[in-house]
Design a protein around this nucleic acid. Structure first.
Lengths: 346, 346
DNA sequence: TTGTAAGCGTTATCAT
DNA sequence: ATGATAACGCTTACAA
């Protein structure tokens, strides 16, 4: 069974003490050039690898950061994770990813597991079920650094990184209005989520600007309790069944957009001829096959990077941090040419 | 700074020794019922959490398993990861996910990092750049348990879990032949990968069965060296430019399928009227919007589960394992009704 | 410059 | 049934 080489082995082999070897290896104290060279060369030769578990126990840090997302099988989050990793690795941190699958219990378990395994900090995007923040406030009060991204907790004072959801929603809605829609529905996520509120606000603001009344019947939440595709289908069907049927839908997320487009297609409803669509999405595939889809694109990779930079700064700052920042990044509105509309792709 | 409660704190508070507390907590030695109850209740009350780092140092295991995949932003792998997690968590293991982004160097770094951080075992799907297996054989010889899935290494003797790629490719190709295609191209991944060879073999076997000659001009590899979409576009354009233009394409992966369909759409080529398509894909989205796409679906979730079960068995077996198994799971061929063809979706 | 020894939080092996 | 002690691999005052 796999018995790694320790500092002791080197010490014994070279007739030195473990502390001398340790010093040679870490290069922190003054040590004779020869011994250092001797140790380093020998260590290299026999393939010594320090045991990070022992180091963690001693230093009380693990050089790893924990990530909590609902799902990696999601374009937004997989892009964000790529951003997180790009920074983390370059700064010598390891990334541990966990998924909640939108379950509150799972979130609690994951957070606690990571905390107890000694992650140095946490990057969190809340599950749609989460209302109670006790599992996080407890750790936050104990001083565990944490940065929220995307789905943030308003009641905890930390760094937060989000897209400008208000603005993104405003722009998309305004685009729908400007291209002639008036009866605009809004298909969105669980009301629990911060992003849901922000996007709803932007939606309403755009309506207000153009004196389009807000119709509560046009607002549909999908809380991801069951199969998302079924939820979306029910919601879209309800919208289509309204006597005052919407002529446009503003959709708050990637997976909702896909589900909605598919449902419309099943009904033979043409986009944008019969109904116009604008939505948040980070999926290339959905866009590739839906040239009429106006998209709000979030800078997921960048958001991941910035959140990680903030977290590492928090972790490595010697003094308690009191100033917490909320970084808001611009979204991009991608309007596709109407000339591309009505393409038959079979 | 976040100072967790230790066994010592409990011992001091209760006037006991640390060993007694430890025993009460782990319930391994005979201990008086009262002391046990006392300790457990007090531990519960003050929220004691054992320090897994210390436990790992002592037990020489970390109860975590490392996963190496090329990309989590990939339907096959995110589904497989969900399968991995479902088993791992139920057995008390933590999952650490790393991505290679198809880079050999990155694979080496990740594997070494995880090994040195003391993962108890490794679940690996090779990067498309990997030819040299030294970073793995070294660890394998030291006794680190590892299980390969999907993109396996033929030269290492361990457990392996794969889909029946040969059969999947055979079925898809046969379907194309049966529905009238003869000039069948094959768009596939890097020749390095085990899955590439298996799928090519199945493809060729189906051609042979129906006496369709294999035309080398129809074979296109995309090695993911650059942007995949560009690679695919070049390959597809080459196929279309052939004097003897293919009437069907069998595509070996998810992302290649998407890219190919998009390229065809750009050219205004209709599927399946102008050209028939069958391909490996685990993406719902691509399928949703391409009713004419015949799909080979891999049991990614199940593959993840089985690989993890095997790995945990390896980890927990007291005696060195000498028998290694290769599990091959059935793929599913999803043929869509031709009635759904030629749908105008926008 | 180098060695000795204590300590990080646990668990296991002795005694008692 | 419980306590003292050593050990896991490493770092770091402190002594030499």
């Amino acid at each position: 069974m796999y018995q790694p080489i320790t500092i002791k082995d080197i010490a014994k082999a070279l007739g030195l003490s473990t502390s001398t070897v340790s010093r040679a290896l870490t290069d922190r104290y003054e040590i004779s050039v020869e011994t250092k060279k001797l140790v380093l060369e020998y260590a290299e030769k026999i393939g010594y690898q320090p045991n990070p578990i022992a180091q963690s126990l001693k230093e009380r840090r693990s050089h790893s950061i924990g990530v909590v997302v609902c799902e990696v099988a999601n374009n937004y989050f997989s892009q964000a994770i790529n951003g997180i990793e790009s920074i983390a690795y370059s700064r010598g941190y390891h990334v541990i990813i966990t998924q909640t699958h939108e379950s509150f219990d799972r979130e609690v378990v994951n957070v606690q597991h990571m905390a107890s395994r000694g992650v140095d900090g946490l990057l969190i995007s809340l599950s749609s079920e989460t209302n109670d923040l006790n599992h996080l406030t407890t750790l936050h009060e104990k001083g565990l650094p944490m940065v929220f991204f995307d789905r943030v907790a308003n009641d905890i004072e930390t760094h937060k990184v989000i897209a400008d959801n208000y603005r993104g929603a405003f722009d998309a809605t305004e685009h729908l209005i400007k291209t002639g829609s008036r009866r605009i529905a809004h298909l969105t996520n669980s009301p629990n989520l911060s992003i849901t509120a922000e996007r709803l606000d932007g939606f309403k603001a755009a309506l207000a600007k153009y004196d389009v009344p807000f119709n509560p019947d046009y607002l549909k939440h999908c809380d991801h309790g069951g199969m998302i595709q079924d939820e979306v289908e029910i919601a879209v069907n309800q919208l289509l069944a309204l006597s005052d049927r919407p002529d446009a839908i503003f959709i708050a997320s990637d997976r909702l957009s896909t589900g909605c487009l598919y449902t419309l297609k099943k009904h033979g409803i043409k986009v944008p001829a019969d109904i116009a669509i604008a939505g948040f999405t980070n999926s290339d595939v959905a866009e590739l096959f839906n040239p009429a889809l106006t998209t709000v694109r979030q800078p997921a990779f960048k958001i991941g990077q910035i959140a990680t930079e903030m977290l590492i700064q928090l972790i490595e700052s010697k003094y308690p941090v009191t100033e917490f920042e909320t970084r808001k990044l611009d979204t991009e509105l991608i309007i596709r040419e109407s000339s591309e509309h009505h393409v038959t792709i079979t």
